[in-house]
């Protein structure tokens, strides 16, 4: 058997998956964006119209929701970085091997629980008479209830492992003598982190942020269960998928655009090559 045949046999399955299932369904989705919906039965008919896009521009609800979702996704990403970096440094450089193992398990363990279970757990935690208020109520602190804040907290809880694991791994791979050299030259801990650690783990942070950002952008179950009246891009798509699938398809271009813009800007920094 020649090499070429071998290679194509090897690539057949992934290519079938990528093109046949992944790309094809995406293209079908985008094509649907130009189709029309029967106003009475909500049935979709093939055709060509730009009305769905016009509606998205004309109705300000789409724009405000897009911006809100973008804000939520960015907030989740920033919060995940703020938690992951100190945690990663502590685990990799300070903690004893035993504690390190415990922490590593603690971070990855939530990944084993069902997604919906975790969201419902957050729902119970933040309900008016829930865990949060009953624990902190005596201190005079009351929880955020079901709001955007809770959505950000819940999404951070859901996606933190995707940031914490690569960041921890990156810090762990930093040679210890860099820290020694830095302190020999008189740098304090903060200065070392800022000038030595952060630049070196930037690819890991960016890799993690791609997950936290794009996963948050597409989520709507969190908004539904802990968001109160918070509406995200996914909420609109989910409610339209029943009633007006073409407009849902048209609107799904917005998160795709956000992610593409994000990836392109990340790529310009050169971080993707080092991922």
């Amino acid at each position: 058997m020649n090499r070429r045949a071998q290679l194509s046999a090897l690539l057949a399955l992934p290519m079938l998956w990528l093109i046949g299932i992944y790309i094809f369904s995406l293209v079908m989705l985008l094509v649907t964006a130009f189709w029309v919906t029967d106003p009475f039965t909500s049935k979709v008919k093939p055709g060509f119209t730009l009305r769905n896009f016009e509606q998205i521009i004309a109705n300000p609800a789409y724009a405000t929701t897009s911006l809100r979702t973008l804000g939520i996704a960015l907030a989740v990403t920033v919060l995940s970085i703020l938690i992951s970096v100190p945690l990663g440094i502590f685990m990799a450089k300070v903690a004893s091997p035993k504690l390190r193992a415990i922490l590593a398990v603690a971070i990855t363990l939530p990944l084993w629980a069902g997604y919906l279970v975790k969201i419902l757990a957050m729902r119970i935690t933040f309900t008016e008479e829930g865990f949060f208020n009953s624990m902190l109520g005596p201190l005079g602190i009351s929880g955020p209830g079901f709001s955007i804040v809770t959505v950000v907290l819940t999404l951070t809880y859901l996606w933190l492992p995707y940031m914490a694991v690569p960041v921890y791994t990156a810090i762990r791979q930093l040679p210890p003598n860099l820290f020694d050299a830095s302190s020999d030259l008189g740098a304090g801990a903060g200065f070392t982190i800022r000038t030595v650690v952060l630049p070196l783990i930037r690819p890991a942070i960016i890799a993690g942020s791609i997950f936290t950002f794009s996963l948050s952008l597409g989520d709507y179950i969190a908004a539904k269960f802990v968001g109160g009246s918070t509406q995200m891009i996914g909420s609109i798509i989910a409610s339209n998928i029943n009633l007006n699938p073409p407009i849902a398809a048209a609107f799904s271009l917005v998160p795709i655009a956000f992610v593409v813009i994000y990836l392109v800007s990340v790529q310009r920094t050169g971080a993707l090559e080092r991922m």
Partner: peptide, 15 residues
């Protein structure tokens, strides 16, 4: 107003 108009109007309620 038909149901599509209701659907579209409904979105503006929550934003």
């Amino acid at each position: 107003t038909n149901f599509q108009q209701w659907t579209d109007a409904w979105l503006s309620v929550k934003s």
